[in-house]
């Protein structure tokens, strides 16, 4: 991947990836910082990036791991949880539905939240979600089903028993 290709890739996917990581960790500013750092590492590790079948997935995974790492470091140092996963929203204006959805996502267990975002937001098929998260396909399907049910409940749309039978590609 040369500089021109990288620039095009970066420009086209940055906002999308920030949105995805935001949904996963619940903090937009932290998501942006982690995605930014992940792209720096992507260029730094461009040999690895060239080998990756899906560069965007590579950056997403790196950004997510960075967020997890930073969160752990923050908690371990006993600073206020002012970074990832903190219950606050950034200053920029977001729509009420957007805020409600992010808050609801934060209430989900991490595994369910990540599966939901990868499948429904990143449009990854279940098998690719399984590959990216390192769990069996059946586990992904269970997480998607439970996560969707919980999300509907958290957003005040009822327990959504009718969704129990939802299938995932």
């Amino acid at each position: 991947m040369d500089a021109e290709e990288f620039d095009s890739f970066y420009t086209a996917s940055f906002s999308r990836l920030v949105g995805q990581i935001h949904a996963m960790i619940g903090d937009r500013d932290e998501a942006q910082e982690c995605v930014q750092e992940a792209f720096v590492r992507a260029w730094s590790h461009r040999r690895q990036l060239e080998k990756a079948h899906a560069p965007e997935a590579w950056v997403r995974t790196t950004a997510y791991r960075l967020a997890v790492s930073r969160w752990r470091r923050t908690v371990r140092a006993r600073r206020d949880p002012d970074r990832a996963l903190q219950r606050r929203e950034s200053a920029a204006e977001l729509s009420p539905d957007h805020v409600a959805l992010v808050h609801a996502l934060r209430e989900l267990p991490e595994a369910q939240r990540r599966a939901i975002v990868l499948h429904h937001m990143c449009d990854l098929p279940v098998v690719e979600v399984a590959a990216e998260t390192g769990v069996p396909v059946g586990t992904v399907k269970a997480r998607l089903s439970r996560g969707r049910t919980a999300l509907m409940s958290l957003l005040g749309d009822g327990p959504a028993d009718d969704l129990e039978g939802v299938s995932h590609a």
Partner: peptide
């Protein structure tokens, strides 16, 4: 019934991301 997953797909579009210029990203990577 409103499907929250439809809203999920719109999350990216609502963001006011402020990325660094590509050249700066490459400079930091180098």
């Amino acid at each position: 019934m409103r499907d929250p997953l439809d809203e999920l797909k719109n999350l990216s579009g609502n963001l006011d991301a402020r990325p660094l210029p590509p050249a700066e990203v490459r400079r930091r990577g180098n």
